Simulated scan of single mutants.
Amino acid sequence: MKQSLGLVSLVVRDYDEAIAWFVDKLGFVLIEDTFVPEQAKRWVVISPPGASESRLLLAQASTPEQESRIGNQTGGRVFLFLYTDDFWRDYERYRQNGVEFVRPPVPHPYGTVAVFRDLYGNSWDLLQPTEQNLSQ
């Protein structure tokens, strides 16, 4: 048996501002942007460059309860872990693009990591795993 997580929903304030931030600042790829008339919303899927299985569904908040979760989907904990094959390349590019890092790069036995915030305040790890941890 093989299973994988294909999509993770990220609640956003506005589709277009979220697409622009993830594409322009992080270099993500816009996979799909389709209007769903039955639900009066869009199906917006983005992906890190080179990723084949993991993708984000940008879900525009449609209720006050959903709006209250924007930027705080996990109570302030790191929400998503963005793996990279070249930490310093991406770290420097993100900083040049104005991405806010809230914890500086630190080498750990499992890899090099720094924490950044997305445009809504969600915390992310930028992580280059060690070879040993990449294969697990």
Rank of each mutant, 00 (worst) to 15 (best):
D24Y: 01
D24E: 15
D24N: 15
K25D: 07
K25A: 12
K25L: 01
K25N: 11
L26R: 06
L26Y: 02
G27F: 00
G27T: 05
G27K: 00
G27Q: 07
F28I: 04
F28C: 04
F28H: 07
F28Y: 12
F28Q: 03
V29T: 14
V29M: 08
V29Y: 02
V29S: 13
V29H: 10
L30Y: 04
I31V: 15
I31E: 13
I31Y: 01
E32C: 08
E32P: 02
E32M: 10
E32R: 15
D33T: 08
D33K: 15
D33Q: 15
T34V: 14
T34D: 10
T34R: 12
F35Q: 10
V36R: 09
V36Y: 08
Q39C: 04
Q39L: 13
A40S: 15
A40F: 07
A40R: 12
K41C: 12
K41N: 13
K41A: 10
W43E: 06
W43N: 12
W43P: 05
W43Q: 09
V44W: 00
V44H: 01
V44I: 14
V45L: 07
V45C: 07
I46M: 05
I46P: 00
S47C: 09
P48A: 14
P48G: 09
P48F: 03
P48W: 01
P48D: 08
P49T: 12
P49Y: 06
G50Y: 03
G50Q: 09
G50N: 12
A51Y: 01
A51M: 02
S52I: 13
S52E: 15
S52K: 13
E53D: 13
E53L: 12
S54W: 00
S54P: 00
R55N: 13
R55A: 10
R55Q: 14
R55K: 14
R55W: 00
L56P: 01
L56R: 04
L56D: 02
L56Y: 07
L57D: 08
L57Q: 12
L57E: 08
L58R: 06
L58G: 06
A59S: 15
A59K: 14
Q60E: 15
Q60F: 02
Q60M: 11
Q60R: 15
Q60I: 04
A61Y: 05
A61P: 06
A61D: 06
A61L: 07
A61F: 04
A61V: 04
S62M: 12
S62E: 15
S62T: 14
T63P: 02
T63H: 10
T63W: 05
T63S: 14
T63F: 03
T63R: 09
P64S: 11
Q66F: 06
Q66W: 07
Q66C: 03
E67H: 11
S68H: 06
R69N: 11
R69K: 14
I70L: 05
I70N: 07
G71H: 03
G71M: 03
G71S: 06
G71I: 04
G71W: 02
N72I: 06
N72S: 10
N72Q: 09
Q73D: 11
Q73L: 10
T74D: 11
T74Y: 08
T74E: 10
T74W: 03
T74V: 14
G75K: 03
G75Y: 03
G75M: 05
G75R: 02
G75V: 07
G75S: 09
G76E: 07
G76D: 08
R77P: 00
R77Q: 14
R77L: 11
V78T: 13
F79L: 12
F79I: 04
F79K: 05
F79S: 10
F79Y: 14
F79P: 01
